[in-house]
Design a protein around this nucleic acid. Structure first.
Lengths: 196, 196
DNA sequence: TCATAACGAAACGGAACGTTTCGTTATGGA
DNA sequence: TCCATAACGAAACGTTCCGTTTCGTTATGA
């Protein structure tokens, strides 16, 4: 099976061993990819990485902390630069994001993160105040450009952003990324619609 | 504290004891209300209800199954009858739903359910194929009426529905029901916007 | 040279899982 | 009236995971 020979990564002295960090992140990725959130335990990651649990807890506060670093490490260079058409910008960005979620363990990582935040108040706080704002910078940029062009009113950006986020969450949380692909353009047109 | 004297609900013969069922559902409600999803364990519910765990597992397959019955039992008679204005109908329904989620343990139950579905494939399947369709009947009715009036195109109903669901999920999952209240009307106007 | 600190392994106590075993209780068909 | 049937609560089972502690080993860097 997936049984590599024992990795043998002893201490390299009084400092963090990058090989251990990499092995733990890789193991977390692999566990999420193969078992999903159900099988994602610190014990499982530790076993798979051939690392001691104290080594994990030394560098990561909890599961959510590890999940966020896994997600950050996976996150490809998905960028969004505004053109002149908000609806098209959003649709392009969304398509890229969804294929990122489908083509890597990231979709499962993201779902695990949202689930984790439902039982861990600290995780929810970090998600809301750090993780989400960071991830939404580009999308906010698209909306800001549309506001600057006068396409949408500034006061409605939060409502539209909530619609955008929720649309993505609904599809990823119900594991309907493939099925929902076709509805992206229509949804984005509504989110980007000029005020009447 | 909340320590009632031992309830003493022995068997009433070779049939289900309704008192036990009620006690278990009430205990599940209470645990969710006081501890949230983090404290929601079968052991905790069992202890609180003064019921044996086998009694729980005899009648409910798993946690998700119990959660769904709790939610169903809580679900007040929130109804949606279409008027002539889809945006207003959606806004009214959403406001009622959110105050239901805030004023009862239902918001937490719902969050627990979504979280549970991320680790249990069976729970996700039931959520997608039974729970959600049931819950969305009324909202679908609102959209259907708008389609019948010619206000929105029939082909866009799924996209708009996804936007609607996601908007609610985003706010409940991030525990931002109160903060987001003001953005409901704007969001619903976008979801209900006529095709251009 | 040597205090320092990270490493993996192993074990800890505690909690929850889902199941089994048990003695008790009452039903409903024979 | 008798008795097979089945639900009840209590307790305990073995397993898994939690987050932590202890331990001997390894190599740094002052």
């Amino acid at each position: 099976m997936t049984a590599e020979p024992p990795p043998r990564r002893a201490s390299i002295g009084a400092r963090r061993n990058p090989a251990s960090q990499a092995a733990i992140l890789a193991a977390a990725r692999a566990v999420l990819a193969e078992e999903g959130y159900a099988g994602f335990s610190i014990d499982a990651v530790s076993r798979r990485a051939g690392a001691g649990k104290p080594t994990i807890y030394r560098w990561w506060k909890n599961r959510a902390d590890l999940l966020m670093e896994v997600y950050a490490a996976e996150k490809a260079g998905i960028r969004a630069v505004p053109s002149e058409d908000l609806a098209r910008d959003l649709a392009d960005y969304t398509a890229a994001l969804w294929s990122f979620w489908c083509g890597t363990p990231s979709g499962r990582t993201f779902r695990a993160l949202l689930a984790e935040a439902q039982s861990d108040p600290d995780a929810l706080a970090v998600l809301r105040e750090k993780f989400l704002p960071d991830r939404l910078q580009d999308v906010r940029g698209l909306f800001a450009a549309a506001v600057a062009r006068g396409d949408i009113p500034a006061g409605e950006v939060e409502a539209r952003l909530a619609l955008y986020i929720g649309f993505n969450w609904f599809h990823v949380l119900t594991d309907q990324l493939d099925i929902g692909l076709a509805s992206i353009p229509a949804a984005m047109r509504l989110i980007a619609a000029p005020a009447r």
